[in-house]
Write a protein that binds this DNA or RNA. Sequence first.
DNA 1: CTGTTAGCGCTTTCAA
DNA 2: TTGAAAGCGCTAACAG
Lengths: 332, 332
Amino acid sequence: MVTVGIKEVAQRAGVSPGTVSNVLNRPERVAAATRSRVEQAIRELGFVRNGSAATLRAGQSRTVGLVVLDVGNPFFAEVARGVEDVVSDRDHAVILCNSGESPEKESRNLRVLAEQRVRGVLITPVGEDTSRLQRLRDRGVAVVLVDHSASGDLCSVAVDDVAGGDLATSHLISRGAERLAFATGPLAIRQCADRRKGARRALRNAGLPVRSIEDVVVPEMNAHGGRLAAEKLLAGDLPEAVFCANDLLALGVLRTLLQAGVRVPDDVALIGYDDIEFSSAAAVPLSSIRQPTYRLGKIATELLLDECDDPGGHAHQQIMFQPELVVRESSR
Amino acid sequence: MVTVGIKEVAQRAGVSPGTVSNVLNRPERVAAATRSRVEQAIRELGFVRNGSAATLRAGQSRTVGLVVLDVGNPFFAEVARGVEDVVSDRDHAVILCNSGESPEKESRNLRVLAEQRVRGVLITPVGEDTSRLQRLRDRGVAVVLVDHSASGDLCSVAVDDVAGGDLATSHLISRGAERLAFATGPLAIRQCADRRKGARRALRNAGLPVRSIEDVVVPEMNAHGGRLAAEKLLAGDLPEAVFCANDLLALGVLRTLLQAGVRVPDDVALIGYDDIEFSSAAAVPLSSIRQPTYRLGKIATELLLDECDDPGGHAHQQIMFQPELVVRESSR
DNA sequence: CTGTTAGCGCTTTCAA
DNA sequence: TTGAAAGCGCTAACAG
C-alpha cells in the first residue's frame, strides 16, 4: 500500500502542495488550467485526502455525533435517517452512538465524540441532567437536544407530547366517549407522563371530570403490555374509548379485545401513538398520532450545522413540533 | 476555550509528553506512582486526547464505517445495533452511512470513509459489482459484506434466504397444503428471488410439481402490496396456503383475507418472513421466518476487527446464518 | 495566482 | 522507567 499524499499529487501536477490544498479547499482561487491539471493528477494517483491531518491542522472536523437511546427503535432509526441525509448533503459524516438508556454508556459515547473532535452532537439525553452536555459545549462542541426540550442555552427539537395526548383524547371525546381509559407504560417515562397530561387537558376543555379517564399502567410498552392492559379493562366495566401511549400497546389491546368478542370501534374506540407503519395494517386499522420523526432529525441537524458555521450569530432555538391526528377505522 | 493537550498534562504532572502518551497507550510501561500522578493531572485538566492527531501519527484510526441500504428499515437498524455494541465494547466508533440503494451515494460514502481513514468498512453493497470495494481494500481498509455473500477474497455474513424459503414452504406442505401461492415483491430483489428458489426446492423435495405454487408479484413489499396480492388471490381459486416474502406483505394479505370472510388458517394458512415485532400481535398471530439480525451486525463487526488486528493471519470467512421457523396461529 | 513555510497534537524510536 | 526529538499529512498565512 503506497501512500499517496498531497506532495505526490503536487509533484505529478508540477505545482506546490499549497496549490493542491487550494484546489481541494478553495478551488476558485486557482487558475482553471492549473486546477484541471491537479484534478487529473488526483484522479490518476487515486489520491484521497487524509481527513485526520486536515482536521488536526484546521482544528475542526467534518463529523457530527448522534447519540440515541436505542438505534433498534424505529423512531430513532428514522431520526437517524433524517440526520444522515442532511449531514451527507453537507459533505459531513455521522458518528453513531447508542446509549441504550445507560448514563455510563452515554458518558463514554460523549468522550469518544470529544476525542474525535466532532463539530457538534445531536443527543437524546438519558436523564434530565444536562451538565455533561454543558461540559461538552464548554469545549466548543455544539449540542442540539433531540426529542427533549432545552431551556434557553441550548437548541432543541422535540414533539409536543402534551398536544398529542390532547389531540387523541379530544378526538375520542368528539366521537361521544365519556368514559375513557389511558393505557400506558411507566409514568416515569416523560413521553407517557406528557401524553397523560394532554389527555387530562382535553377532558377539562370538554367539561368532563378528570375521573372520566382511568389510567391503566403496564410495565412494558409493547404488544404484551397491551394484552395485560386489555385484560385489566375486560375485568371491569369496559370504557367507551381507550387511548394507548403507543401503537404497540394499542395493537396488543386491539387483539385482546377482538378475541374477547368486543367490537372495535362499535363497543370500544381505540387510538394509539406513533403511527408506525403496521398500524394501518392491523386487524382494524388503527387511529394514531403521527410524529414528524424524519424532520426531527433533519431540522436538528440543520440547527446544529448552522450553529457550527456561525457560532457568534447563532441564536438558540427550542423547536416544538406539533403531532398530527390520523383517524382510521378503530375510532371512526 | 483553552486547549489542553498532552503537553499541559505533562507539565502539570511534572513528566514529559512521551510519558503521558505512554500512560494513555501502554500504561503498564509506566511506574505506578508516575501513572497516577499523570492520571490525576488528566482529570484535573479535563484532558481529552485529540483523536485526529493520534490517528495521523499512528496511521490508523479507531473507527469503522457502516454503509447500509436504508437506516430507516428495522432490519438495518437492528444490524446497526449489533455493530454499535461490538465497536463500542472495543472502544471504537461507528461512522454511519446510508446509501439509500443509490450507487452514487454509496461511492460518496466510501470516499468519506476513506478520508476518515476508518479501519474497516461493513457494507451491504448496492449492486453486485464489488470492484469499488476492491479498491478500498487495496488502500488497506478491511471490508466485510453484510447480508450479501462474498466469494473468497472477502469476509461476508449473510442469512440463507433459500433455506428460509424452503423452511416456510416445507412447513406449509407438512400441514397438508398442495396448492400454494408465493406473494412477493419484484423478483429482481435478490432476497425475493432466493426465497422463491427455496420454496421451489421444498416442493421438489416433497414430490410436488413446481406448478403447485403460484407467484403473485406486487410492486411494493408493504401492507398495501399485501392487499393487492390478496385481491389477486381472491379473484381466482384460493390456494390452501400463502407464503409471503416479508411480514408486511403478509399482514396486508391477512387483513384483506379476513375482511373477505376467509378464515386463517382454516381456509388459507399464511406465513411471512422477517418476524418483525408486530407479527405476533396481528389479528391472527403470524407465522414467520426469523433472521438473526442483531447477530449479523455483531459477527460481521467481530470479523472486521479481527481482520484489522491481524491482517496477516486473517483468513476470510463467508458466514451463512440459517434462519428459523416460528410457527404461530396463522399456520397452526 | 502560486510557492514557501511553520506548525496542528500526538506517537514512537532511541538514548539516557 | 523516563525524556528528547522527529515527523505523520495537511492547511493557511504570507511572500513573491
